[in-house]
Design a protein around this nucleic acid. Structure first.
Lengths: 264, 264
DNA sequence: CGCATAATTGACCCTCCTCAATAAGGGTGG
DNA sequence: CCACCCTTATTGAGGAGGGTCAATTATGCG
């Protein structure tokens, strides 16, 4: 599965309530100009690894923010490409569709993660990005990113690493889709999710799913009923406590064992 | 599925024999310095879209070639990262492994395609690249690529597009693995392969598979027996003529219909 | 030429899908 | 603030696609 950035913010674990308050404050700032150099996501986002003076130069890159309501699309496949987007608050899914109408969720993105990298190849977006809760993104003009990364090496390096990490992540998903059984897939999914949430200061054992069973199923190559059944089985086995979208992980090692045990 | 570059070399369709002779000649050139500016893959490889003077500057990038015998690895997961590799002749597979020993073939690479992009993220390769026939690659020192692409925009743009295209390709594979049935997967695989071969001047209807049924199966998330059975079924249905690894496509549209028909 | 590797094919079974009914939420408007 | 409706989740029964195990055949490399 994907390996999320491991930097843990100073504040360690925050409660859901604290985070909600923080989110509310941010939404008020929507119209203000934002600075990467003072963003509390700078350890997780594009600025990762940049030195202080360079970090300030990055500020010219992030022109504006955009708010996307739950259920709305940040962009659609086919839209002309101008900008990348860094998730500031909220949660997204990306989805590709084949001509005959088949959908596949290709990823879920949370704070600090970049959206739109696929679009560089053809100057058009190739997937839909849909907000799964009210969200906010930083708009990064791609041409300016290219200009700036020609000027300073650290940014160039950071950006290349981010693209490469996306490729590595996709390979992990391919491994999951190509060789794991339903239980292994769901376990891997949950562990990946909690790992990324933990890196953002949330509890490693308690989470609220932002996506439906169908969206999880699409991502994992399973039908929604199979996802639901597998959740129930995990609960029966004492691995999880499941109340709709509220998940509590009771036995993380048990989940890990599931993922790491080759079938047979 | 992946969309291969569509540029067709001047020479149109070449016979297998001609290609074999050409390959033999190239191997003799192994020790010589090579120039992108005179390479007949320049329409398919990293130089794509570069203007003549810039193309010549690219020559300093490609320091050497390396020969990899059938069955040998160009690099392994965990190896330190220094260079990207452009396939000059031959055929590769890339493969990721999970800790518990599960393997997944993540791609097959032919002339003009880049290997090693995954390694940028962590300064180590994250997959194995194994030659499926005697092959030759151009060694591209990554640090020099970064330097040069800071100097000139076209190269930077090209390189970003190549990375992005890899992401798009991976999303296509995820769609395949997540939502297609066995016949659809194999049909999509064959169409993708012939499309890429055609872009390199080979026949669109006749090909020799360089990989085993097991490797195809790993890539497509199927067991080798299922791949074999599906080949046989395609033959019974008059879509293909299958003689071990020699494939002749008798009904391309029929294959296309299979891919484009959502199940149900 | 011979052996190890690769491919084909059959029989059986298991996982996951399909179809369907029911229950539980959550958002909206009166 | 509650009732209603629509979406989402759960659970069951039955079936099919593809996996597993095994035997046979083809083949290509040394």
């Amino acid at each position: 599965m994907a390996t999320a950035p491991k930097a843990v913010p100073a504040g360690a674990t925050r409660s859901i309530i604290e985070v909600k308050e923080r989110t509310a404050r941010m939404i008020k700032l929507d119209t203000l100009k934002v600075a990467c150099s003072s963003c509390n996501l700078r350890e997780l986002c594009l600025p990762v690894g940049l030195s202080k003076p360079n970090l300030e130069r990055l500020d010219e890159l992030v022109a504006s923010r955009r708010t996307v309501k739950r259920g709305e699309a940040l962009f659609h496949a086919g839209d002309p490409f101008h900008s990348l987007y860094a998730v500031r608050t909220g949660f997204f899914k990306t989805r590709v569709s084949s001509e005959d109408g088949r959908d596949q969720v290709t990823g879920f993105q949370m704070a600090g993660e970049l959206l739109g990298l696929d679009a560089i190849s053809q100057d058009r977006h190739t997937c839909d990005a849909v907000a799964l809760e009210d969200s906010q993104v930083c708009v990064i003009h791609y041409s300016q990113l290219e200009n700036l990364s020609r000027e300073f090496t650290e940014l160039q390096s950071s950006f290349h690493k981010i693209m490469s990490r996306e490729i590595v992540r996709d390979h992990g998903v391919m491994l999951l889709l190509g060789s794991m059984r339903a239980e292994e897939r769901l376990a891997a999914f949950l562990l990946n999710l909690t790992q990324r949430l933990q890196a953002r200061g949330f509890s490693p054992s308690s989470l609220i799913l932002r996506m439906t069973r169908e969206e999880i199923g699409s991502y994992l190559g399973l039908k929604l009923e199979t996802v639901s059944r597998t959740f129930s089985k995990f609960q029966d086995d004492g691995l999880l406590e499941v109340k709709q979208r509220q998940i509590r992980i009771l036995d993380q090692e048990g989940l890990q064992r599931l993922v790491n045990s080759a079938s047979c």
